[in-house]
Design a protein around this nucleic acid. Structure first.
Lengths: 132, 132
DNA sequence: GGGCATAGGTCTACAAACTGGACCGTGAAG
DNA sequence: CTTCACGGTCCAGTTTGTAGACCTATGCCC
């Protein structure tokens, strides 16, 4: 399937780096799910409770927050502590691993802040170009 | 199709901490959509054609690839060049902005590679803990 | 005692997003 | 003449996410 007689691709063939059983893919799938990064960033300042997170992120549904936290806990990025009190209290905080992830994530956030004007300009340019 | 130029995007109303006028949210929503990062990484070695990308990423649907590329182009991260030949040829490549984004992304990928064992260990630990 | 609030979820309909395959037009290969 | 390939788009069906009701168990107020 991959060898086409006419295909003039003088470029490098498929890179094996991003194939299926690839750790990058695996981790990227986790942190690239829209909410995970946001939850991690929200936990950066310190311990948070469930509804506190929900209020801070604001447009995440209970179910997604619950699911996201479960995954993050599963991946060892967040720790969960439930106190068997009667109005239940559950606290989430970053593990050391979670903190270590925030270093590259912070770089990403810095990029976002820095290049936001460029992105916005590109968007406007694109819109003007496609309008006519 | 009918696109009104005044159509507001689908961002939700007010949110406290990582609120709306927050570029982090905005950019994170783009790069956190599972495919964008993967496409950018695949374009890193050089120019790629549409189906070439599709083959390299392999489990992305045509529609999502098309949509993702359109967004990336819109955000000024990728440039698109269509040659009016008869078997149509369209080439995509990273812009300078796109390349600049890959720096922090590379840091993230490095983290993923480095900490993959820790994450896997955490997953196994979690599974054993919840199984009983 | 009865009613309500509170915290952390889960469950359930419903809506939005994504998928895989058909399809398009044109030219070249078999 | 049929088949294939290019870069998409369109449609139907499946998966994923949402909002909101509901649950448990206690303490507070009246």
């Amino acid at each position: 399937m991959n060898d086409s007689p006419l295909l003039p691709d003088t470029l490098a063939p498929a890179s094996p780096a991003l194939a299926q059983p690839c750790p990058i893919r695996d981790i990227l799938d986790r942190i690239g799910d829209q909410w995970s990064l946001l939850v991690l960033l929200t936990l950066r300042p310190g311990t948070r409770r469930f509804n506190q997170l929900r209020r801070e992120i604001d447009d995440i549904s209970k179910q997604m927050l619950s699911r996201t936290l479960k995954q993050l806990e599963q991946d060892g990025l967040v720790s969960r502590t439930a106190y068997p009190e009667v109005p239940p209290r559950v606290e989430y905080q970053l593990t050391e691993l979670g903190h270590s992830l925030l270093t590259p994530v912070a770089a990403l956030v810095a990029w976002a802040e820095r290049h936001q004007p460029a992105v916005n300009a590109a968007r406007e340019r694109y819109q003007r170009a496609t309008e006519r």
